[in-house]
């Protein structure tokens, strides 16, 4: 009985705070999404409008564009490239040649630099490098690849690849370091056995390394979906959803509709769409990650 009182007292503050900041708001967001609440008229409150916000969202021409940006560019492209490049770097740093040259430990340290750089600063760095008279344009013109400087973040052809580059620079190191630590646990005998069977380099990678890393890749990929789909800062700080609204994504649309157009109701409806999509991934998270974390930790 004394234990029970102790358990409750110890857990209560954290749990109450989490319920207030995660539990209550998600329900209130649902309620707001059924109203026409305005940021300028919060005192008088909003009127109940039923599903009007959701109907508007479906009939707006720009919503499918925003959805496409979010799913294809912000999420799918960045997640796939992040995993591919991260895997590439991990495999590269695990080669014995580099270990003998002591390059691997230097490279590990180098990975810490972008990883420790806060996203808000990573965007600053790349906005500077991608300036009209910045480093990237200078380098490309010096190599005669382009003849005119490109306004990378203002040109529709280059803006998304540029945003994805910023995201990758900032987040690939975490993936690479994770996979590298997994790679170092692959038993040496697996490779020796494969070599005896006459496996080629590619076959060893395909049938020994990759299956061994697969669980880690899946988990990192899934987590990566969460970080990317919900991410606000990369797009907002790199382009402000521009040029125009060309790079608008769900997260920036939630902010724009609420704090620029003052339409809290409509903005909350978009938020609910995001919550539903993430809820679907949440089930995967529960199965793949949370379940494992629970077993490992408790």
């Amino acid at each position: 009985m004394r234990d029970r009182l102790f358990i409750t007292t110890m857990l209560l503050p954290a749990v109450v705070l989490l319920v207030l900041f995660y539990g209550y708001p998600i329900f209130d967001n649902l309620r707001i999404s059924f109203t026409d609440l305005s940021l300028l008229g919060m005192k008088k409150g909003g009127n109940w409008v039923g599903l009007a916000n959701y109907r508007e969202l479906l009939h707006r021409g720009d919503f499918s564009h925003i959805l496409f940006n979010t799913l294809i560019w912000l999420t799918a492209t960045s997640v796939l490239l992040r995993l591919l490049i991260g895997l590439g770097i991990a495999v590269l740093l695990n080669t014995r040649a580099l270990k003998t040259l002591r390059l691997a430990s230097v490279a590990r340290f180098a990975l810490l630099v972008p990883w420790a750089t806060p996203p808000i600063v990573a965007v600053v760095i790349w906005r500077f490098l991608l300036e009209r008279n910045g480093f990237v344009n200078d380098a490309l013109m010096g190599l005669n690849i382009i003849s005119q400087p490109i306004a990378f973040l203002a040109d529709m052809r280059t803006v998304w690849p540029s945003i994805v580059t910023i995201m990758l620079w900032n987040t690939v190191p975490l993936i690479a370091l994770s996979l590298l630590s997994n790679l170092q646990t692959v038993p040496e005998e697996y490779y020796e056995a494969a070599e005896l069977d006459g496996a080629t380099n590619w076959q060893m990678f395909r049938f020994v390394t990759l299956p061994f890393l697969m669980p880690a890749i899946l988990v990192l990929g899934l987590m990566s979906v969460f970080w990317s789909f919900n991410n606000f800062v990369y797009v907002w700080l790199a382009t402000g959803a521009g040029p125009g609204t060309f790079t608008n994504v769900l997260a920036t649309e939630v902010y724009l509709k609420a704090f620029v157009d003052f339409r809290l109701g409509y903005s909350s409806a978009i938020g609910m769409v995001m919550a539903v999509v993430m809820g679907a991934f949440g089930i995967l998270y529960l199965r793949l990650v949370a379940h494992r974390q629970l077993e490992e930790t408790l």
Binding site: I32, M42, N230, A251, A258, G271, M274, L286
Partner: peptide, 19 residues
């Protein structure tokens, strides 16, 4: 609590602002 790690914070902005 584990779920809190992947929670879409952007969705909380409006209700928290109102509160």
């Amino acid at each position: 609590i584990l779920f809190g790690q992947v929670f879409p914070w952007i969705v909380l902005i409006n209700p928290l602002f109102v509160a």
